[in-house]
């Protein structure tokens, strides 16, 4: 299969360890040839790369971000992302974010799903699957690796 990815999945977290383990988990779930997975340590980096991705006609359908980050916070990042990519599903992955803030973001439509650290792989997998389903893409992009759970 020589697929050029048509969709992208973005992950942002200031802790590289998190990005590493996320990478490990996602590449088990997803055919990386079909779905572009990018990992960034800061929202600024992410945004600039995201721009070049979309230039290549790749849809960004899923953003996974941390909340507490130096410089730009997760909230700010999502706000910008949602403005630029209205259809993107935003997921927040955070070790610290109070309910009110989360609710506020959800009510504003900035946040679709919130996952608290430490997270279960299954939860993560669910969100990805849902997004892929919704985007009406070939489900074969999704590699079901049941046994890895």
């Amino acid at each position: 299969m020589n697929l050029f990815p048509k969709i992208a999945l973005i992950c942002v977290d200031d802790d590289p360890s998190i990005l590493h383990v996320l990478h490990f988990q996602l590449q088990k779930m997803i055919d990386t040839n079909a779905v572009l997975c990018e990992f960034f340590e800061s929202p600024e980096e992410a945004l600039s790369t995201m721009a070049s991705i979309t230039e290549q006609n790749i849809d960004i359908i899923y953003i996974l971000s941390d909340y507490q980050m130096p410089k730009m916070t997760g909230e700010e990042f999502l706000r910008v992302a949602k403005r630029r990519y209205p259809k993107v599903t935003c997921v927040m992955l955070s070790g610290q974010a109070d309910e009110t803030a989360v609710e506020k973001l959800k009510s504003e439509g900035l946040l679709d799903i919130f996952i608290a650290k430490p997270w279960s792989e299954e939860k993560l997998f669910d969100t990805v699957r849902n997004v892929l389903k919704e985007s009406e893409l070939n489900p074969s992009y999704l590699l079901l690796k049941q046994k890895s759970m």
Partner: peptide, 23 residues
């Protein structure tokens, strides 16, 4: 809260890391 947050990430990393090594 700060500590909780600060510990959450390393813990998640360790867990997943350990998991991945096992796998």
């Amino acid at each position: 809260m700060g500590i909780a947050h600060d510990l959450n990430s390393p813990i998640a990393s360790i867990r997943v890391g350990a998991e991945s090594i096992r796998e």
